[in-house]
Simulated scan of single mutants.
Amino acid sequence: MSEIYREFVLRGPSVWKALVAFVKANAKAACDARKPLRVIVTSSERKRSAEQNARLWKAVYEQIEQQSWVNGRQYDKDTWHEYLAEKFLPKKEVEMPDGTMRLRRKSTTELTISEFGEYMQAVEAYAASELGVVFYDQG
């Protein structure tokens, strides 16, 4: 039996039914294969995944780096990351050791899965509409 992974966000009765049906359909086979299903209930959302981060750098930033020209110049992925993170990620005021206050952007490592997805959508939309980037399927 291959590894099973399925996530359900319980927003309504149809999802609850799907969860119950999934467990009914897979629990016995998983136990028989000595790979019992794990059920975790939480109200918090997981942090962004390594797969999401890899896609951002490979499929998104790499395309931006290769296709974008600004004032006759191209920039590397790290520069685009800093620029776009500053442009699209939320900022919060933090106190420095000397007592001064400073605005700091949220790091992509702090984003939840859905926040990271929204960030990638904003980056891709900006790159397509403002920079003329065409995103190619990486699959």
Results as ranks from 00 to 15, higher is better:
5 Y>W: 02
41 V>T: 12
16 W>G: 08
130 E>S: 13
121 Q>E: 10
13 P>W: 08
35 K>F: 02
92 K>F: 04
115 E>S: 05
45 E>H: 11
22 F>G: 00
32 D>K: 04
19 L>F: 13
27 A>Y: 05
15 V>E: 15
124 E>T: 15
1 M>R: 01
9 V>M: 05
123 V>A: 11
112 T>S: 14
66 Q>H: 06
42 T>Q: 09
78 D>E: 01
112 T>V: 05
13 P>E: 12
110 E>S: 06
108 T>M: 03
118 E>D: 06
69 W>E: 05
70 V>K: 12
102 R>I: 14
72 G>I: 01
12 G>S: 15
96 M>S: 12
81 H>L: 00
125 A>F: 08
110 E>A: 08
42 T>G: 01
54 A>S: 10
122 A>R: 14
54 A>F: 08
49 S>Q: 10
41 V>Q: 12
47 K>M: 10
15 V>Q: 14
137 D>N: 05
73 R>L: 03
120 M>P: 04
119 Y>M: 07
104 R>G: 13
73 R>Y: 04
16 W>D: 15
89 L>F: 04
40 I>C: 07
32 D>V: 02
48 R>K: 12
89 L>H: 02
90 P>E: 07
105 R>M: 11
23 V>P: 01
91 K>W: 09
75 Y>T: 03
7 E>W: 01
40 I>W: 02
60 V>H: 01
29 A>C: 05
22 F>E: 00
36 P>T: 09
137 D>E: 05
124 E>P: 09
127 A>L: 11
28 K>Q: 03
139 G>M: 04
38 R>E: 10
6 R>I: 03
116 F>W: 01
39 V>A: 06
73 R>I: 00
90 P>Q: 03
126 Y>W: 13
71 N>D: 06
117 G>Y: 01
34 R>V: 04
96 M>L: 15
133 V>N: 04
81 H>C: 00
111 L>G: 04
53 N>T: 13
48 R>C: 14
1 M>P: 02
73 R>C: 05
68 S>K: 02
55 R>F: 15
11 R>D: 12
3 E>P: 02
16 W>R: 14
15 V>L: 11
31 C>L: 06
129 S>N: 12
96 M>D: 13
103 L>N: 14
111 L>N: 04
78 D>T: 01
104 R>Y: 14
2 S>E: 15
81 H>G: 00
112 T>P: 06
20 V>P: 01
12 G>N: 15
133 V>Y: 03
102 R>N: 12
80 W>T: 00
11 R>W: 07
50 A>R: 14
14 S>V: 09
114 S>M: 10
103 L>D: 15
98 D>V: 13
31 C>I: 07
14 S>M: 08
83 Y>H: 05
76 D>C: 04
77 K>V: 06
94 V>Y: 14
22 F>H: 02
26 N>F: 04
77 K>Y: 00
66 Q>D: 07
8 F>I: 11
70 V>H: 09
119 Y>R: 05
28 K>G: 00
65 E>S: 11
134 V>Q: 08
38 R>N: 09
20 V>Y: 09
48 R>F: 09
47 K>F: 09
103 L>S: 14
79 T>H: 02
109 T>L: 07
130 E>R: 14
21 A>Q: 13
68 S>W: 03
41 V>R: 13
